[in-house]
Each structure stands twice: as structure tokens, then as C-alpha cells.
């Protein structure tokens, strides 16, 4: 199985020094359980910080050099179209500053691949198939069987990264390739007037005891709603609309 792991130029949240984002190293760990030969792919001006992934189980890093403000999507898509890996792994969100977490989706659209988010476990599932465990909110997990090729993003709840190995990082190969310079991803951000968002925490009656208020607050946080297993689409839609009305998101 040919696996490519997308690596971003992250920064340490406290020291701001270049540092690979933990969730991408976790993706590397998941990948190293599936295949021995994993390629890392990064589009950016340099390999600062990114190269340390070579100490966490990555054997080769392909660096697509582009200008600092270019949109990496163009270069990544071009390379991935050419190399056609069976599996592309990415972290759920990069950690370099203004990272939106949208790149994996944009890339999947560009490549015409299915994307599955927030994966914590991957097993080979027979010829051309993968058995994947996906994180849902509030601790729920879902098992999914998926046909390759596909793009998966990894969730921070996946197993911890393999420990850094200085000697492996020293041995690792970095291949420099010319990327495609392009326009910065988006121009000026769109501005809109402020609108107060509806509170999702249920209110308990004023003057209720602290325990009641706590109960109300935590119950709302715990979802409240109803769990429907395999509902009919129409029924599900009705249920959602009712819920949104209840919490005041839909007015009519």
C-alpha cells in the first residue's frame, strides 16, 4: 500500500518554534502500522520543523518548494495526481497560525477522493479496503469500511506519536521538488455585522439551586436530544428541525 502523509509547518503552541504538529505525527504512527515505506509531503518554503517527522517513523520527505504565501493546495494536488497514493493521511488541523482545517477537504474535492475525518485507528481490511475507526463527538466511535484510494484526517485521540529518534531523523532523506507558486489562498476576509449567537446551554429557572443550574448546564452539554439509530431520512430531518426550533436556532 502506497501511503502519503501530509505534513504542515507547525509551530509549538507555547514557544512558537517550528515543530511538527502532534496530530500529523499521530497520522504517521497510524501509517507505519500499515506499511513500512511512507512518504511525507510538504509544500512550503523550507523544511524547518517538518523535517523532524523523519524521526517519528517517516522514511522519505518530499518537499515542494513554493513561496511563503502561495496556496499549497495547487502543488499538493498536482503531485498527488501524479503519484496516486492509495491512502492519503492528514492531521485534522495544522498548527501554524491561521489554519482552518479546510485543506484536506479542498484537496479531496480536487482529487475526487472520498474523505473521512477524525480517524483514530486504521486496519487493513482486505483487498483494496480499509477498516477505520472514526471519532464522533462525546466519546462515540464509528467503524467504517472504506474503499481505497481515499483521504483520511486523523484525530488527536489517536495513539500517541512514536517517540522521536535522533538517529532516524539524521538518516532520513529529504527530496526537494519544485512546487507551483500560486495566489495566496484567500484575499481579504469577509466582514459581517455581529450577530448574537443562540446559547446552547439550557437555562434553568432563576433562583433555582446551584445543583439545578449545574444539572441544566451539564445536561445541555450532554446533548439532551434523542438518539435515532438508522432513521428514515424524512424522520431524521423532522427530528433535526424540531430540535433546532427547540433551542432557538430556527425561529419559524
Amino acid at each position: 500500500m502506497k501511503i502519503t502523509v501530509l505534513l504542515s509547518a507547525g509551530r509549538h503552541p507555547v514557544s512558537a518554534r517550528p515543530c511538527p504538529p502532534a496530530v500529523e505525527l499521530q497520522a504517521l504512527r497510524l501509517a507505519s502500522g500499515l506499511a513500512a515505506d511512507i512518504t511525507g509531503l510538504h509544500a512550503g518554503p523550507s523544511a524547518d520543523g517538518v523535517a523532524d517527522a523523519l524521526g517519528h517513523g517517516l522514511s522519505t520527505l518530499n518537499l515542494l518548494t513554493i513561496k511563503g504565501d502561495s496556496d499549497p493546495l495547487v502543488s499538493l494536488a498536482a503531485t498527488l495526481k501524479a503519484t496516486t497514493p492509495d491512502l492519503i493521511l492528514a492531521g485534522r488541523q495544522a498548527q501554524g497560525g491561521e489554519d482552518s482545517g479546510l485543506l484536506p477537504y479542498a484537496l479531496a474535492r480536487e482529487l475526487g477522493l472520498p474523505i473521512l475525518a477524525d480517524v483514530v485507528r486504521i486496519d487493513a481490511g482486505g483487498e483494496g479496503l480499509l477498516a477505520v475507526e472514526q471519532v464522533l463527538p462525546r466519546g462515540a466511535r464509528r467503524r467504517v469500511v472504506l474503499r481505497l484510494p481515499a483521504l483520511l484526517t486523523v484525530h488527536p485521540a489517536a495513539p500517541a506519536p512514536l517517540p522521536f529518534t535522533f538517529a532516524a531523523a539524521r538518516r532520513g532523506k529529504i527530496t526537494q521538488l519544485q512546487g507551483v507558486d500560486s495566489q495566496p489562498p484567500s484575499a481579504a476576509p469577509e466582514e459581517r455585522p455581529y450577530r448574537k449567537r443562540p446559547k446552547l446551554i439550557a437555562k434553568s429557572a432563576a433562583g433555582a439551586s446551584a445543583a439545578d443550574r449545574l444539572k441544566a448546564a451539564t445536561e445541555a452539554a450532554a446533548g439532551g436530544g434523542r438518539l435515532l439509530v438508522n432513521p428514515a431520512p424524512a424522520e431524521a430531518a423532522r427530528e433535526i428541525i424540531t430540535h433546532l426550533r427547540e433551542i432557538g436556532v430556527l425561529r419559524r
Binding site: 500517541a160 517517540p163 535522533f166 538517529a167
Partner: peptide
Amino acid sequence: TLELGAVPEKAAP
């Protein structure tokens, strides 16, 4: 540590 990355679990972070 340096060659095998085989450090105790809590030492790695």
C-alpha cells in the same frame, strides 16, 4: 533513545 526511540512511555512527551 537516540537510535531506537525506545523511551518509556511518559518520557517521550
